[in-house]
Every structure is written in C-alpha cells, then in structure tokens.
C-alpha cells in the first residue's frame, strides 16, 4: 500500500479537492477504514466531492498538519526508548501516550519488534582451523593411527608369542631331579601344553592358572639343578606338594608377583621398537606431504581417508584392549606420547 501515515495527508487533500483517480480513491478509503481515527468528524466523506470549492476551516487544517509532527515525535520516542536514550521525563511521556491511545501502543509494539536478536545456534563450523600455534598437518592423525597400529601389533604378538615364552620361562625355572626323587614324573615340553593357536587363544586368567599348575610340579625339597636340558622341562609330583616349604613359598610369590610384569616388559619391548619404526616412517610421510604441494581437495580427501583408516584401526585396537589390560596399555601409550611431546 502506497498510502502511509507519513504521506496520507497529501492524499487527504487531493481526495477532498476531488483530484484523486478512482484507484487512488479506493485505496485512500481503504486506508481510512484501517485508520478510522484519522477521519475528520465534521466532514461527511460521501458528500465531500460535492464541495470541491470548499475552503477548509483553519481548525481542521491545523489538525491535519499536526498529525505528522506528532507521529514523527512519537516514532522518535519509540526508537529512543529501544535504544535506551530516553530520560525519565520522556519515558513517562511515552508511557502516557501509549496508555492514552491503543494506536500508539500498536505502533510501539511494532517498534519493539525491530530489535534484532542473533540466532546463537548458528556457529562457525571451522573454528579450529583458525587457531594458530598448533600444527595443522596430517601428523596428529598419523600419531593416532600409530598408537592404534601399535596396540594391534601387540595384540597379535601377544597371541603368537607370549604364552609360549611364559611357559618356557617357568618351565626352565622348575627344578628337575628325576634321579633323586622317584615320586616325580618327567614332563616334556609337549606334555605340558602345546602352544595355543590364534583360534585357541585362552584368557589370561586361565593361562596364569596353567602356569601355576606347572609351579605345583616343583619338588619343593630339592634345590635347583643347573644341568637341565631343553627336553627335561618339568617334574610333576604324584601328590599335592606341601606349599608351606620356603622354596615353594618363594616360587609361589615369584610367580604371582612377576608373571604379569614379565609379560608386560616383553610387550613394552615390542611396543617401543614398533613405535620407533612407525614414528620414523611417519616423519618421512610428513615431509613427503609437505613437499607434495597438495591441493585443498587432496588434503580434504586425505584427511577423510585418514579418519576412516583411524576408525577402522581403532575398532581393532579396542578389541585388543579388551583382551589385554586396558589401563596398563593406555598408561604406556600416554607415557610414550608424553615423552614424544
């Protein structure tokens, strides 16, 4: 609608003088229907056209002319109110005006709605890319990959080697004295337990129990015989040994205290060597990436692929961590990274 509170008075005069065309007349009358308060009481609109030559009384003219001024002042008051620029007196004036006429209240409500509010849910998605001081290359991704890979390798190493190593260790520490103690029975490597295959891997607790069984085969009254051979590995007593003897007690304690330590020290060695190899490889990779002058799209693809690879490895690593002692592995990884950093 082109007739507004700011320009309606011109239309008003044209209408009174009969200068409006039919379209503008209809629009002006519609406007007056929306704003009945602007109609001049003393004039019958239906008969206005008959008095084209009528001279308006000064009172009416002044009433018409005063309206825009009041409107402008009111608008300014409303905006100043929103902007927090009103003095107490002006504020009271505004409130009085608003309470006086519903029209002013309507106008003021519209002004209040012009105060814009930011949508806090809209956030810049790449904020981390703006942060300075942190390396923004691919190395962090590969560090994670390296950690995950190492854990995976440990898992496999543990499966294939650890059980056999432990059995060997404890078997070799068993005292053999077949000549002096006829009650004892010679046990060969194959008669203890064959090395479990990957599919037959046993839980750690079960392995420990089996190692303890080996310990039970120790002839507690005897001393260590340094002449043991690879074929003569262990001697199992016919009956339950007396666990209270000093030698047996020592061995029992040794096994319970050191079994896991030994296992983990072996793992650590594997871990360290694999990690060092991985790290040097990653260094080379990192240098290579820098010299390749990758495009943004290449970098994006590479990062996506790295992320997928990382997710895949993480799943494998999590399986491994479930099988192993999670906390100890994590501590070890953390310590390695602490040193690196």
């Amino acid at each position: 609608m082109k007739i507004t509170l700011e320009n309606y008075e011109a239309y008003y005069l044209d209408y009174i003088e009969g200068n409006l065309n039919s379209k503008d007349t209809d629009e002006f009358l519609s406007f007056l229907l929306i704003h009945p308060e602007l109609q001049i009481e003393d004039i019958e609109f239906t008969s206005i056209k008959e008095y084209n030559t009528l001279t308006l009384p000064d009172t009416i003219k002044s009433k018409i002319l005063r309206i825009p001024e009041v409107e402008t002042k009111f608008s300014n008051l409303c905006i100043e109110k929103i902007e927090g620029l009103l003095s107490e007196n002006e504020n009271e004036k505004l409130i009085a005006l608003i309470e006086k006429e519903q029209r002013y209240q309507y106008e003021f409500n519209l002004y209040s709605k012009t105060k814009l509010h930011a949508d806090q849910s809209i956030i810049y998605p790449f904020k981390s890319s703006l942060i300075k001081g942190k390396k923004r290359n691919l190395f962090p991704y590969f560090s994670i990959l390296a950690a995950a890979s190492v854990v995976g390798i440990i898992y496999l190493t543990y499966q294939s080697n650890t059980i056999e190593n432990k059995q060997k260790k404890y078997q070799s520490s068993i005292i053999k004295n077949t000549n002096k103690n006829p009650q004892l029975q010679l046990v060969t490597r194959t008669s203890i337990n064959p090395t479990p295959r990957k599919q037959e891997i046993k839980p750690r607790n079960q392995i420990k129990q089996e190692l303890l069984k080996v310990d039970l085969a120790i002839p507690h009254e005897k001393t260590i015989n340094n002449t043991q051979t690879d074929n003569d590995l262990a001697i199992i007593p016919d009956s339950t040994p007396n666990r209270s003897t000093p030698v047996a007690q020592f061995k029992q304690n040794y096994i319970s205290q050191n079994t896991e330590n030994v296992i983990y020290s072996n793992k650590s060695l594997v871990f360290s060597s694999v990690f060092n190899e991985t790290r040097s490889t990653l260094k080379e990779l990192n240098i290579a990436f820098k010299s390749m002058k990758l495009t943004d799209e290449d970098k994006k693809n590479l990062l996506t692929e790295s992320q997928l690879f990382h997710d895949k490895l993480s799943k494998s690593a999590n399986k491994a961590l479930d099988f192993l002692d999670v906390n100890r592995i994590k501590t070890y990884i953390n310590s390695i990274f602490a040193i690196k950093n």
């Binding site: 809209i122 956030i123 810049y124 904020k127 703006l130 942060i131 300075k132 001081g133």
Partner: peptide, 21 residues
C-alpha cells in the same frame, strides 16, 4: 600475543560468521 589471538577466535568467530551470513 598468540594466545590472545586464539582467544579472539574462540570469542568472536561465531559472531562474525552470523554477521556475514
């Protein structure tokens, strides 16, 4: 400083983004 610059990122990146949007 570097940390102060990073702080500006944390505090105002969203505001500038909304403004530009």
């Amino acid at each position: 400083k570097l940390s102060e610059y990073n702080n500006l990122v944390e505090l105002h990146a969203d505001g500038i983004y909304r403004f530009a949007l």
